[in-house]
């Protein structure tokens, strides 16, 4: 029961912050709300007992990605640029489509889909050790591909963003 209350509080916080991200007219405030959303998602990971992923979420998203976004906002004129409307002309229709999509998804999840009555077993004690062993054992190829992808993205980002004309 306590868990459910905590879950509802954390997810409401996450969803409200996410809504502020997409609706706030000031870009910089959106970025700060995005940080709050990431923290809320990390809270959901904690509730799912994925401790390592919660720490990764805080370090990568709250630590790195939001800093990157705030830097990009400060480097472009987004923060102090001239006031234009922050949403485009089709925003009304997109809102309608999103609402329909939300209703469809909720209908699918709650009514249509019969989730197997799973009783979640306990997370094994050495879950983080198992995760580490799997990352360099069974899943070593995706792990290496991901690291090559990060390297390529790093080099690509530097090439794209550097000052000199190509």
């Amino acid at each position: 029961m306590v868990m459910r209350v905590v879950f509802v509080v954390v997810s409401l916080f996450t969803l409200v912050m996410a809504f502020m991200v997409v609706s706030h007219p000031t870009l910089f405030s959106s970025a700060l709300y995005l940080v709050a959303t990431f923290l809320g998602v990390a809270g959901l990971y904690v509730l799912l007992e994925a401790d390592f992923l919660a720490v990764v979420q805080v370090m990568i998203y709250v630590g790195a990605v939001s800093i990157l976004i705030i830097f990009a906002i400060m480097l472009s004129r987004g923060m102090m640029g001239k006031r234009t409307s922050s949403h485009n002309r089709q925003a009304k229709w997109v809102a309608l489509a999103s609402l329909l999509l939300a209703i469809l998804l909720l209908y699918f999840i709650t009514v249509l889909m019969r989730w197997p009555a799973v009783q979640a077993g306990p997370v094994p004690a050495g879950a983080i050790q198992m995760l580490g062993q799997d990352l360099v054992g069974r899943y070593v190829v995706p792990f290496e591909v991901a690291s090559v992808l990060l390297l390529v993205a790093l080099v690509g980002a530097i090439v794209l963003a550097r000052e000199r004309e190509i």
Partner: peptide, 15 residues
């Protein structure tokens, strides 16, 4: 869905 709305309705590329 919130992200979907934002991705299609914001003007700013960073948003």
């Amino acid at each position: 869905v919130i992200g979907f709305y934002g991705a299609l309705s914001r003007r700013n590329a960073i948003a």
